[in-house]
Amino acid sequence: ARLLHGSIFAKVIEGLRELVNEATWECSGNGITLQAMDSSHVALVSLVMRSEGFESYRCDRNMSLGISLVSMSKVLKTMGKDDSLTIRVNDDSDSIIIAMESQNQDKFADYELRLMDLDSEHLGIPDTDYSCAIKMPSSEFSRICRDMSIMGDSVLICTTKEGVKFSAKGDLGQGSIRLVQTTNIEKEEEAVIIEMKEAVALTFAVRYLSMFCKAAPLSPQVGLSLSEDTPLMCEFKIAEMGHVRFYLAPKIED
């Protein structure tokens, strides 16, 4: 799998590695997918990178590759900003080859990372017709998570026709941030768009939402989909090639 802009792949890894330290990559002719839960089984990430999004891609037989995302992140940090990246696994090999090339082809770096034998548990994510779909700038969402974490461990997300409200309370007191829907969309990247069938009010652990925000550099906009008593879906699109979707189980009154 070759990417002209290797930095896209580095951003994907940076976006996942805090939530899941290691994961099994499923490779097929259609591309690369990954599904993994965090160690507490509260959140789940689902990654799709379609073959046509790569400069070149070939996969002769389906493979499951157990990879340490922490190690891969270290290797990818050695990559130059404009380097291209090729990822390769040879038949019957127990390692993955990560090759980087500088833009003017005067530097070539090769790394081999040992593959891991991982016990991965696969979940079926049901198709959900969410009550609310919010789009907002990724940077805004990151900031809201950071700001809400000052006040408490949990954030309550409430949507109405007018907008979306994030609130948190704790020992210090309480705080809230309300975003109203953008009425005059000039720049789509900066817009807040709320599609609502039903109002929702759901509580989530801010710590996980903040971890999802590590994937924010992938896309200028984030999508949040919500339904009562259903995990939140937080989506970052990966250019033309796919997406990273994070799911977070809500906190529910017993």
Partner: peptide, 14 residues
Amino acid sequence: MAQQKSITFFFRKK
């Protein structure tokens, strides 16, 4: 107090 649910509570195992 709201209790944190597990993701496996919502998504079935394959």
